[in-house]
Amino acid sequence: MKKIYTFLFVMLLVAASPNILLAQAKTEILIRNATVLTAAKGRFENTDILIQNGKIARIGKNLKASSNAQTIDASGKFVTPGIIDCHSHAMLDAINEFSFSVTSMVRTDDVLDPTDISIYRALASGVTAANLLHGSANSIGGQNSVVKFKYGRPVEDFLIRDAPSGIKFALGENVKRTNFNPTPGTTPRYPRTRMGVMEVIRDAFLRARDYKQTWDDFRAKKTNVPPRRDLELEPLVEVLEGKRLVHAHGYRSDEHLNLLLVADEFGFKVATLQHALEAYKIAPEISRRGTGASIFADSWSYKLEAYDSIPYNAAILWKNGVLVSINSDSDERIRRLNLDAAKVEKYGGVPEEEALKM
Rank of each mutant, 00 (worst) to 15 (best):
L159V: 11
A220T: 07
K212S: 11
V197F: 01
D217Y: 03
C86M: 10
N46A: 11
Y302Q: 10
L12C: 11
Y120G: 02
M198F: 10
K303T: 13
K357R: 15
K150Y: 01
A57H: 05
R244H: 05
V237Y: 05
G60V: 06
S299Q: 15
R58L: 12
P184F: 07
K343Q: 07
E156S: 11
K61C: 06
Q213W: 04
D298Y: 10
R229V: 13
K2W: 05
A342H: 04
G172L: 07
A94L: 02
S330V: 02
A129F: 06
R202S: 10
I119R: 04
G54P: 12
V246I: 12
Y307G: 05
W300G: 13
R194K: 08
R207I: 05
I72R: 00
L245A: 14
R32T: 15
S328Q: 02
V350K: 06
T47S: 03
D230N: 15
I167A: 01
A25C: 12
R121L: 11
N338A: 04
K168D: 02
K243C: 06
R202P: 01
K303M: 15
I334L: 01
K319L: 04
L30S: 14
S165K: 15
K212L: 02
L245Q: 15
E45F: 12
A315T: 11
I286P: 12
K150R: 08
D254Y: 14
D254S: 14
F100E: 04
L133Y: 02
K77G: 01
